[in-house]
Computed example of a mutant assay.
Amino acid sequence: MLVYDGDCAFCTTSVTYAEKYVRPDCEVTAWQFADLDALGVTRERAEYELLWITPGGAVYGGAQAVAKLMLSGRGAWAPLGALLRLPPVSWAAHGVYRVIANNRDRMPGGTPACALPADRRPDTMTRP
């Protein structure tokens, strides 16, 4: 399962792109609609980074979640995902992921809501 921040326009746009072009073999859901307790993750972690959760309950976050997403994709995406897991590429991927995630409100498609903590965001979605 891929879990992302559904309140963030940049995140939603990125996931929509991945669903269309990478075509991962997984369920995709916004954390706002997920049973985080059942998935074994906290709200804080789900707000902080993209999450990839295996059927066995292993949780990968950030750049490693992107790598897992790509590994489950079709075509040339899988080799790119494998590359993202190898040092030193994985170290660079982590740094790039954090820069993008920390500035997602400034990214194309980002909105001011992307920068706010969840308890201060406009309530545009119904939460479970």
Rank of each mutant, 00 (worst) to 15 (best):
V3E: 08
Y4M: 05
D5H: 08
G6Q: 07
D7Q: 13
D7M: 14
D7K: 09
D7P: 00
A9W: 07
A9V: 06
F10D: 02
C11L: 06
T12R: 11
T12Y: 08
T13Y: 12
T13F: 14
T16A: 15
T16V: 01
A18C: 13
A18T: 09
K20D: 10
Y21M: 10
Y21H: 15
V22G: 07
V22W: 06
R23C: 15
P24R: 09
D25K: 12
C26A: 13
C26W: 06
A34R: 08
D35Y: 03
A38T: 02
A38D: 00
G40A: 07
G40S: 03
G40R: 06
V41H: 03
T42D: 01
R43E: 09
A46R: 14
E47M: 01
Y48Q: 15
Y48G: 04
Y48A: 13
E49Q: 09
L51D: 11
W52P: 06
T54F: 05
T54D: 15
P55E: 15
G56E: 15
G56C: 02
G57R: 00
A58R: 15
G61K: 05
G62C: 04
G62W: 01
A63P: 03
A65Q: 05
V66L: 05
M70Y: 11
L71W: 02
S72K: 05
S72T: 14
G73E: 08
G75C: 09
A76T: 07
W77E: 05
A78L: 03
P79Q: 10
L80I: 10
G81D: 03
A82H: 10
A82R: 13
L83N: 08
L83K: 10
R85K: 14
L86H: 07
L86F: 04
P87V: 13
P88W: 05
P88T: 04
P88Q: 10
V89A: 07
V89G: 02
S90R: 14
A92Y: 00
A93D: 01
A93V: 11
H94N: 14
G95Q: 01
Y97K: 01
Y97W: 07
R98N: 11
P112F: 13
P112D: 12
P112S: 11
P112L: 14
A113F: 02
A113I: 14
C114G: 05
A115D: 03
L116D: 10
A118D: 13
A118N: 00
A118W: 09
D119S: 15
D119M: 09
D123E: 09
D123I: 11
M125D: 00
T126L: 03
T126R: 05
P128T: 08
